[in-house]
Amino acid sequence: MSAPAPNGASAGAPQSANDARDPSGFLSEIIGAPVTVKLNSGVVYKGELQSVDGYMNIALEGTREFVDGKMRRSYGDAFVRGNNVTYISADS
């Protein structure tokens, strides 16, 4: 995976502000928002998204860890290594 593409690229049709053009555009739009991050192991983290990089490494703030749906732990800040990530979802 390469570094995130520059965001200024002129995408085709006009889109609503919340409708990101591409995946990295989506990720930069949800910085600062509450998110759910699921790992390949099935563990889920919920917290506020501080930052993401091109490897899908993630920094979360105020993070809670869920195993089989049960809260196991909480962290002030947490760095998650990108290779473990299945998805990042913006909590609406």
């Binding site: 501080q50 930052s51 993401v52 990089d53 490494n57 920094a59 947490a78 760095f79 998650v80």
Partner: peptide, 18 residues
């Protein structure tokens, strides 16, 4: 500054981490 995820790790140098 905290611009990218690894900055979080950098700020933990010489601190206890989990």
């Amino acid at each position: 500054s905290v611009n990218e995820p690894l900055d979080l790790v950098r700020l933990s140098l010489n601190e206890v981490v989990f």
